[in-house]
């Protein structure tokens, strides 16, 4: 690559000098975007911390309504998908298109498993009337357990945090499908795998956020 100044590889856009500059720019750009994401979720975490500091007993009480087991399973599912994304990048770096596609496929599958589990968690809660805001209408047994009149604050935060996170997972699934199709067309190789790399970064961040959401929402009681 070092002396290829005259021949511009096809994947290098016109305003970059070489492939490296393009790759490094894309990665830096993605990291800057991840800074965005962290502060975006940061607002929600901030709300969580403020209300937790005010109403600790509410949070311990309300967290009991969340299922630790399924939360834990989902954590492991997401970690697994992070692993497969890392493997996918490795495959791309080693020119193994087949491995890249398989790893992407597993990642998509795991992400879908995450969403399905999330769906059943939501479904269960909505069934019990533990719904956000004006839809808050818990059954009498739940009301008995959740004696705190401000319980809806906790679930407001819960639904916002997991909802926005779930949205990110969905976006991630979309991106992975896009990568899968492009990989099938043979767009990626060891010289050019930038989209795989930066989608991977995004996906790991989604995982990172969940790594904090899980103990804060499910475990602290």
């Amino acid at each position: 690559m070092a002396n290829h100044s005259a021949t511009h590889p096809a994947h290098v856009q016109h305003h970059f000098v070489d492939s490296d500059q393009q790759f490094e720019s894309a990665k830096l750009g993605m990291w800057v975007f991840l800074v965005n994401e962290i502060l975006f979720f940061g607002g929600l975490f901030c709300a969580y911390i403020v209300f937790r500091a005010w109403y600790p007993e509410l949070f311990t009480q309300a967290a009991l309504e969340l299922n630790k087991l399924w939360g834990g399973v989902n954590t492991i599912v997401l970690i697994g998908s992070s692993l497969t994304v890392a493997m996918a990048i490795r495959s791309a770096q080693k020119n193994q298109t087949k491995g890249l596609r398989i790893n992407l496929l597993i990642t998509i599958a795991l992400a879908c498993v995450f969403m399905v589990i999330k769906y059943f968690e939501y479904e269960h809660k909505l069934h019990l009337g533990i719904a956000p805001g004006s839809f808050w209408n818990p059954t009498p047994e739940i009301l008995h357990e959740l004696s705190d009149p401000r319980a809806n604050i906790f679930f407001g935060i819960y639904y916002m945090m997991t909802g926005v996170h779930g949205l990110h997972v969905l976006v991630g699934i979309g991106l992975m499908i896009w990568l899968y199709i492009r990989a099938g067309k043979g767009h990626f190789n060891s010289e050019y795998y930038t989209p795989v790399e930066i989608t991977g970064l995004y996906w790991h961040l989604v995982d990172l956020i969940w790594i904090f959401l899980f103990p804060l929402l499910y475990l602290i009681e």
């Binding site: 965005n36 994401e37 962290i38 502060l39 975006f40 979720f41 940061g42 607002g43 929600l44 709300a47 209300f51 956000p132 805001g133 004006s134 839809f135 401000r150 809806n152 604050i153 407001g156 935060i157 639904y159 916002m160 926005v164």
Partner: peptide, 21 residues
Amino acid sequence: TPVLAITILLLSMENIMDIGI
């Protein structure tokens, strides 16, 4: 700017379904 985004999102949720934050 992302903090504004999440604030505005919370405000919209407040408007749409009174999440109460």
